[in-house]
Design a protein around this nucleic acid. Sequence first.
DNA 1: CATCACTACTATATTTTTTATAGTAACTAT
DNA 2: ATAGTTACTATAAAAAATATAGTAGTGATG
Lengths: 103, 103
Amino acid sequence: MKLTCPIEKATSFLGSKWTLEIIYFLQEPRRFCELQELMGGINPATLTQRLKLLEAEGIVNREVIPDAQRHVKYELTPKGKDLVAVYRELSMWVSHWYPEEAQ
Amino acid sequence: MKLTCPIEKATSFLGSKWTLEIIYFLQEPRRFCELQELMGGINPATLTQRLKLLEAEGIVNREVIPDAQRHVKYELTPKGKDLVAVYRELSMWVSHWYPEEAQ
DNA sequence: CATCACTACTATATTTTTTATAGTAACTAT
DNA sequence: ATAGTTACTATAAAAAATATAGTAGTGATG
């Protein structure tokens, strides 16, 4: 007897390690190696997997920059940017309940 | 060169499978087996682990009801209830971007 | 122009986490 | 007396994450 939970869809991808942090850092466009550095411990295979998942979900856009080096830029789609309100609330919660750690 | 991310603390426990859903369903007090039923696929060992973690984090309160059966009730602490604002934003995001699935 | 570095990954083996399944101890209902 | 409920724990297997190394394409340095 499983009730439908309106956030079930969201938790299917947000509720896995790193995803919340990836989206947070993508509030400005980043390259793959930038994300790696920002999120110290992430494994490149995991990062790749998450970015593909978020891309498939329409939250993240992957763009190959047409320079000689063919750098890759990741950025939030409008759907992804729309999650900023969620982060605003979450940040407020953290700064309220963990005042010493927020900044 | 790891920048501090204000939601890093939050992601350390929210960013793992089931946690977001558990807190969602605890918007009203529940017993262990209720949570199990509500979240179809969760493993009891995982549920136990998550509830302990959330209890240690001060988000969930565990209470043994002093009836003969010694039922156990889980509920959100004020800190946990304060996450409701986050869920409100997340629910709005889901109902906007997944209109067919929300409800 | 050979060597080294950087970028954006992929491959493999190991470790960690999650799961399926079964079991337990205390009570309750028939 | 037997079966059912509740709140878990135990164990082994499956799935996911990690460390580590490697690759292919460029670019920079001597």
